[in-house]
Design a protein around this nucleic acid. Structure first.
Lengths: 369, 369
DNA sequence: CACATCACTGAGACCGGTCTCAGTTCGTGA
DNA sequence: TCACGAACTGAGACCGGTCTCAGTGATGTG
């Protein structure tokens, strides 16, 4: 039956027998609770060492109802932003003696739902997640109410009544677009993306141009900031310049190529993430164009490579590590019983001004060069 | 006592009562095992739905002895190589219905030991890890023998008798160095690195120059390949050119700066990882030098940004995703009882020839430019 | 010296599932 | 009509810990 293939583990009963005490006493000695005499404590620990006793965490969790573990559901661990965010989580979790269970959601609401269910089934103490794009979040609210606190990261769908640690995407984008406007640009394109990694490229979602695709909340906010900035200068939004979907790197590159091939190509491109930024820069290089002479670029998320490209990329830097770390700390407070009203922490971004923004080229056609 | 703060969960007993059957029958209906009549099955599932029953995975694992979960201990999730590798793991794991517990080891043997212990305590079915640099691996062998199979990734300390999925670091490096030698270089430096992320920079290890630091097995193999290639051309290894330690990005950058400041600076730099590559390229740009005119560069690990720098970087591409995926599949076979002799899978690397390697500059002093 | 107090210990319930085993019911063939 | 097996069900042990509660013996106190 149980553990057929595994070597029979030594249990606390075995230790107790070897030490000549009851299970309860052995448990007390080993668990460090209750009262145990010095002599018995030594006997038991000696016996445990002798037998190579390793407590069964499952059994302990079963009876205590606590697992000392957190569930993390993020979009894609292979995206540097989420990798760094996850690192912030695991560092804080470790410092607090908590384990971490990780699931990728690939922005798929169904996968997210399943992940949350698994987390609950495993009695995890709390859940950290970057919500997938969807209006349905009952499972999150339910989990939260059933005693498994949930803290949102990076995105914050309104009105969920959950804690969140985010960044002001709208405002950061708005400022970046203004930076471009100030430099004289009016034909500014927007490329979003950052979906599943290339390796799993099996289900090409219908995401060519626009709003029939579910977009991550962050993308929505960034689009909002983009539109707001343009509106503030009375520049009509040209829908051909708005390229958003669930683009991975290659797809983003293709989008950028299309942009450059337009009759009136943009003079600046805002890449709403480090993955689309990569694709965009690649497309620009492919076309033999130069940054910022021929085209200006700003990226949302300051990837580690952004000052190693030529020229160094002007980018909005987000505190990914801190988002993860603070979210974990917030979750811990909830786990420990804090039931104050939900808080949304908005962390600061910074526009790192480097060399990828210049004046717009006046010639609208592709330069010879 | 148990679950004080959590809302009392509905158990299978509650469902059974509501459906008017015994716990055993309810469990059969819900668990889909044994025999249950059509009518009872419907009653039970209806009652379960009604009450919002969610099975307690902990209890199930407890009695079955199976957790359907894997433990993953990697150096640093924030390193793109490991992030991608982890993605390979989680994809395969999900396809097989397994959960994944992740721990960062930061190349610290003690953290690794603890992680493995936690994995065993939680009765995880198997362990995937990138072994930390140390001669002591008893805990891995012990875990394996006690019925928790272990598969190594990326590194493979000799003689452990464990499965592994690796890349031929020595040979790949040797070929890359030969590529440099063929171009005429003789003063070739080697910069390793890729330790803990900058954010946790608290314990500055004594890793300035050489062999008193424990190095990852991969680094050792790469050094070996580097030395072999030089020896094959009768070029004496200059110890000043060998810079290896637990360098994160900034440290690698500093090392590269030191290299460039030598009396006889190298004409080519081999960066033994994407993080030191980043630091190296940054240092070169800082110094106003140009690649490959002033200095040639080859990187181990083809980071996603390598063809976006100017010029695109010649790099050794490793199948990170596949390493994770294949390791997981191998582990699964072991979990399912395969007890054939351990296998070491060596995956192919590829030297992606781009534009960062040229002829050595004859002038040994820093060029004016 | 009687009794309260304290330190320590053991018995056994409990967590929420799974699973074995012993019925019970029913249909079917002899 | 009886025997037999198949289909179904319930009782209860079990997994390996934790934790409550009721002792037990030693010590202290009036």
């Amino acid at each position: 039956m149980a553990r057929s293939s595994r070597r029979a583990a030594v249990t606390i009963g075995d230790v107790a027998r070897a030490a000549g005490v009851s299970r309860a006493t052995a448990a007390r000695a080993l668990g460090g609770y209750g009262q145990v005499s010095q002599r018995v404590h030594e006997q038991v620990t000696a016996a445990a060492r002798e037998l190579g006793y390793q407590p069964n965490a499952l059994a302990r969790n079963m009876s205590t109802g606590r697992t000392q573990s957190l569930g993390v559901a993020i979009a894609n661990i292979d995206d540097p932003f989420y990798a760094r965010l996850t690192r912030g989580i695991t560092d804080v979790a470790r410092a607090e003696g908590l384990e971490v269970l990780v699931a990728n959601t690939d922005e798929d609401p169904e996968l997210e739902r399943r992940a949350v269910q698994v987390f609950q089934a495993n009695q995890l103490e709390g859940i950290l997640l970057t919500p997938a794009p969807t209006a349905h979040a009952e499972h999150l609210i339910a989990a939260n109410e059933q005693g498994t606190p949930v803290v949102l990261m990076d995105r914050h769908p309104r009105g969920l009544g959950l804690d969140a640690v985010v960044v002001d995407n709208r405002e950061a984008t708005r400022r970046a677009i203004h930076h471009l406007l100030d430099a004289g640009h009016t034909r500014i394109a927007f490329v979003a993306g950052g979906g599943r990694p290339d390796a799993r490229e099996e289900s090409p979602r219908p995401s060519p141009d626009s709003s029939d695709v579910a977009l991550a909340a962050t993308t929505l906010e960034r689009i909002d900031g983009y539109r707001a900035a343009l509106a503030e200068r009375n520049i009509p939004a040209d829908s051909r310049y708005l390229r958003c979907g669930d683009f991975h790197r290659e797809a983003a590159k293709a989008e950028a190529h299309q942009l450059l091939a337009l009759d009136e190509p943009p003079t600046a491109i805002f890449a709403a993430g480090s993955i689309p930024a990569l694709g965009t820069v690649e497309a620009i290089y492919d076309s033999g164009l130069r940054i910022p002479d021929d085209l200006s670029v700003i990226a949302f998320d300051d990837a580690d490579w952004s000052n190693v490209v030529q020229p160094p990329l002007t980018a909005i830097s987000q505190p990914a590590y801190d988002v993860g770390a603070l979210a974990t700390r917030t979750l811990l407070q909830r786990i420990r019983g804090d039931d104050s009203p939900p808080v949304v922490h908005v962390l600061d971004t910074e526009l790192r001004n480097r060399k990828s923004v210049g004046e717009p080229r006046t010639a609208s056609r592709r330069p010879a060069e």
